[in-house]
């Protein structure tokens, strides 16, 4: 495959870019993982407080969880960009030949769109966070600063912009992923299968059946 060849010849600078990108995205993943576990713990704690009549005034029961969801929503959005997870409609794309110019044009266009959205996140999300920061407004229940609820937007925007620029410049190949192991993801496998179907340009089922699969589940080897 082409991207791999390119990968071998890549310069130190390109490898450094990839390493930075990986580190950035892994940081997002770690933060998001911690946030989601915190969420479970907080809500379970609230149930305990109520159920066992523990005399603690939980006044953050809505504000903090809402804040956490909002933080990891945008972090997850950026992670989704890195691995091309966001659902799209392949009606036209799948009809085009694998590796063809038309497909590459669509891929390029998608990355440009992501870059545009990332720019919007940075500019307007940054503006929202900044004005709240300057005003020093606080939230009702917790008294935390209000800018916290907007900060996920520009942070995600920066990572998304970085990712999409790397995809656009070819530093990262289109099918490169960090969070997904293609062999393990059923949706990803379904996508590959459809690509093969399209790529075979209607050679029929025999060719499809004969595709050398990578069955990780032994039961899958069973053929009728």
């Amino acid at each position: 495959m082409q991207p791999e060849v390119r990968a071998n010849r890549s310069s130190g600078f390109i490898r450094a870019l990839r390493a930075v990108d990986r580190a950035l995205n892994m940081t997002l993943l770690r933060i998001a993982q911690v946030l989601i576990m915190t969420l479970v713990v907080l809500v379970v704690f609230c149930v305990f407080v109520r159920y066992f009549n523990i005399r603690i005034n939980v006044n953050w029961a809505e504000e903090i969880p809402a804040l956490l969801v909002d933080a990891f929503a945008f972090l997850a959005c950026a992670m989704g960009v890195r691995d091309h997870l966001h659902v799209s409609m392949g009606i036209l794309y799948n009809k085009l030949c694998v590796g063809g110019k038309a497909r590459r044009a669509l891929e390029f266009f998608t990355d440009v769109c992501v870059l545009v959205v990332a720019a919007l996140f940075i500019v307007y999300g940054g503006q929202l966070a900044l004005t709240q920061y300057q005003r020093g407004t606080l939230m009702m229940a917790t008294g935390w600063p209000r800018w916290v609820q907007y900060i996920g937007l520009p942070v995600a925007g920066v990572v998304m912009a970085f990712d999409s620029i790397l995809f656009l410049t070819g530093v990262l190949p289109q099918n490169d992923t960090i969070f997904s192991d293609i062999r393990e993801d059923p949706l990803e496998q379904a996508r590959l299968l459809r690509e093969q179907e399209a790529g075979l340009c209607g050679q029929g089922e025999q060719a499809l059946q004969a595709q050398p699969g990578e069955p990780q589940d032994p039961s899958r080897e069973v053929k009728p």
Partner: peptide
């Protein structure tokens, strides 16, 4: 409602306020 004063009010009345 998720409001510290209202929760304190219920507590002052000897009941329990549940936010969320």
């Amino acid at each position: 409602q998720d409001n510290p004063m209202m929760l304190d009010m219920v507590a002052a009345l000897g009941a329990q306020g549940v936010a969320g």
